[in-house]
Simulated assay, not measured.
Amino acid sequence: MSKLRRVLEALLEPDEPGPPASEDFSDARIKHLEFIQGAILRMAGNSFLFKGWAISLASGLAAFAAIESRRAVLFVGIVSTLLFWAMDGYYLWLERGFVGLHVRVAKLPASQPVDYAMAVDKTHALRRWLRTMMRWHLLLLYGTIVVVNIVGALYLKEVKNG
C-alpha cells in the first residue's frame, strides 16, 4: 500500500493545487481509489473484448457470405458491428467518467470523509457518448469493418447479377 500511496502523492505534486505533499492519504481514501481503478480496468477489458468479438464475428460472417454468395449475411455483420461499436463507445465513455472520478477523489482534502461514491458525471450523457463513439481509433476500426462489409455486399450483388 505504501507504493500506491507514494505514486498518488507524486501524481498530485507537480502542477495541480491539491493536498500538500506532507498530507497523507488515509487507508479509506486509498481503498476508494482502488475501487475506482478496478472499475476502470473492467471497462478497458470490456472494450478490448468488444473489439475482438467484432473482428471475429465480421470475419466469420464475411467468409460465410463469400462462400455461400449471400449478401444478407454481410448485412448481419454490419448490424452486429454497429452494435459492438455502440457498446464499445459506451464502455469507453464510462471508463473516461471513472478516470475523472478518480482524479476528483485523489484531489479531495484529507479532512473530507470518504464516501465511497462510484457515480460518474452523466450530464449530457448521450452527446458525450456519441462523441466518444467518434474517437479516431473507434471510427477507424469499426468504420473499416462496416466499409469492407458494404464493399463485399456490392461485389456479391455484381457477381450474382453479372
Rank of each mutant, 00 (worst) to 15 (best):
A117C: 13
W129Y: 07
K31S: 14
T81K: 01
R127V: 03
P20N: 01
T144N: 13
A54Q: 02
E95L: 04
L141V: 14
G52S: 06
P17R: 03
S26A: 06
F64V: 13
P113W: 01
S22D: 12
F84G: 15
F50K: 05
L33T: 00
D24M: 10
Y90S: 10
Y142Q: 10
D15H: 14
R131A: 09
K107D: 11
R70A: 12
G52A: 09
W129N: 03
A125G: 09
H124V: 04
I145N: 00
L74R: 00
V146Y: 00
P109M: 04
F64K: 03
K107H: 13
P19A: 06
P19H: 03
A28H: 03
A58M: 13
M134R: 12
N149I: 14
T132G: 13
G77A: 07
V146K: 03
I40S: 04
F25C: 05
D121T: 00
A28Y: 02
R128Y: 05
Q37C: 11
P14F: 07
L61H: 04
K31Q: 14
H32F: 04
L11T: 00
G18H: 02
S22M: 05
F48A: 15
A54N: 06
V76P: 05
A110L: 05
P17Y: 06
L49N: 11
A110H: 01
L92C: 11
G38H: 05
I145V: 10
P113F: 01
F25G: 02
A58P: 10
V105A: 08
E68P: 11
H124A: 12
D88L: 05
W85C: 07
A117D: 13
V76F: 02
R131K: 12
F50Y: 06
H124K: 09
L140Q: 07
I145F: 04
E95V: 03
I30F: 14
P19V: 05
L74G: 00
N149R: 08
A21E: 12
A44K: 05
H137G: 15
A21N: 11
V103I: 07
V73D: 05
L138V: 10
D27L: 06
A63T: 01
E16H: 08
R128W: 04
L33I: 00
L41D: 14
D121F: 01
T132F: 06
R131L: 09
S22E: 14
F75S: 00
F75P: 04
V120E: 07
F98L: 08
L141A: 11
G89H: 00
L82D: 05
L130E: 08
R135G: 11
E68Q: 10
H137P: 15
A106Y: 00
H137A: 15
R131F: 08
L94K: 02
P113C: 04
W136R: 15
I40N: 03
S111K: 04
